[in-house]
Design a protein around this nucleic acid. Structure first.
Length: 317
DNA sequence: AATCAGTCCAACCGCCCTGGT
DNA sequence: TACCAGGGCGGTTGGACTGAT
């Protein structure tokens, strides 16, 4: 079975667009608009292209005011913050960057920015053995999504830490949760660990407990137990954290009173930009000077509805 | 000069969502 | 309410390009 194709694949042209095809498509849309039907559009103008292909070509290349390449540091900041907050929702991220397309941002992230931010695998201890490349394999179905892993890594770096686990040993660095989220987060903790004020374990975890609880195996190098200080915030099931990060956990959305300020936008547009400019130190990975502010407000995911509104504005040209 | 590996990015694929009937 | 077509989106692919050997 399977869904019927949107067009006759045998009779449509694939591959790179020719200047003539571009000109045809652009001229027609500028004059008549899309007519609300991409599927029928190529037949109208005599293009042997799939309607979806036309739509993609228009949105990603022919649309007016499209920018290609040359991402600024401010754009990097926005992309990074939004990726941490909402994950790989490229269309939403693109809506915050005028002239940028989701495809462009996605490509930029996958080919450049991710490497720039997470760094390449190193033998040194500058990133404590965490290897971005290692997050792309090793049976991801048993653990966190790659996206969630990257976001955790990025957030750790945003905290300006060499040792990712030290994040969990410094409660002052933990992200500020919205009361509703904190309540939900508490429900993910072991019963003996539900102190709403401290989010601290009552005893040090065993080695690698944090990453291996519930047989979830993470592709991280786990430090020795000696590196784990007491007070580690232990979560019983990391998959639940993945859901938490990915906004899958119930009870967070669609309640207007839960919509807080969107910190990352304040930082980008406001004066406290310092906390986002941490990659300026990318060459030496010296994050010690980075802001200690809790720039990652997990509740920012609650802003997705607002961002979708922006997205609509951005694409309803 | 030839070959290989890595990078980049335009374009495609296929699933999910939504609106119309 | 169920079904269907089209739109939207994220993930992936393939080919061109570049740099290293």
């Amino acid at each position: 079975m399977g869904r019927a194709p949107c067009c006759d694949k045998a009779s449509v042209k694939k591959g790179p667009w020719s200047p003539e095809e571009d000109a045809k498509l652009k001229a027609y849309i500028e004059q008549h608009g899309t007519g609300g039907n991409w599927i029928a559009l190529p037949q109208k103008i005599g293009l042997k292209r799939c309607g979806k292909s036309c739509r993609l070509r228009w949105l990603n290349y022919l649309r007016p005011n499209i920018k290609h390449g040359g991402f600024s540091e401010e754009e990097d900041t926005i992309i990074c913050n939004l990726y941490i907050s909402i994950g790989s929702r490229w269309s939403v991220i693109a809506a915050q960057l005028p002239g940028r397309t989701d495809n462009d941002i996605k490509n930029y992230w996958n080919t450049k920015l991710k490497k720039k931010l997470l760094g390449k695998p190193k033998q040194s201890n500058t990133n404590n053995g965490i290897s971005p490349s290692s997050t792309t394999n090793e049976d991801p179905k048993e653990g966190l999504s790659n996206s969630a892993l990257e976001r955790i890594q990025l957030h750790m770096q945003l905290q300006g830490l060499h040792n990712p686990l030290s994040f969990y040993t410094h409660p002052q660095l933990w992200p500020k949760l919205h009361p509703m989220q904190e309540k939900k987060f508490q429900s993910l903790l072991p019963l003996n660990n539900q102190n709403p004020n401290h989010l601290q374990a009552t005893q040090p975890p065993k080695e690698a407990d944090f990453f291996h609880t519930n047989s979830v195996s993470l592709p991280y190098e786990i430090p020795s137990s000696g590196e784990l200080a007491s007070g580690v915030h232990q979560v019983s099931n990391f998959v639940q954290v993945d859901e938490f990060l990915n906004d899958k956990a119930e009870g967070f959305m669609s309640q207007p009173e839960q919509v807080p300020e969107f910190d990352c936008f304040k930082e980008v547009g406001g004066s406290s930009k310092d906390s986002c400019m941490w990659w300026a130190a990318q060459n030496d990975h010296d994050m010690r000077s980075a802001s200690s502010s809790n720039s990652w407000d997990s509740s920012s995911v609650l802003q997705s509805e607002l961002m979708f509104q922006d997205f609509e504005l951005g694409y309803n040209l």
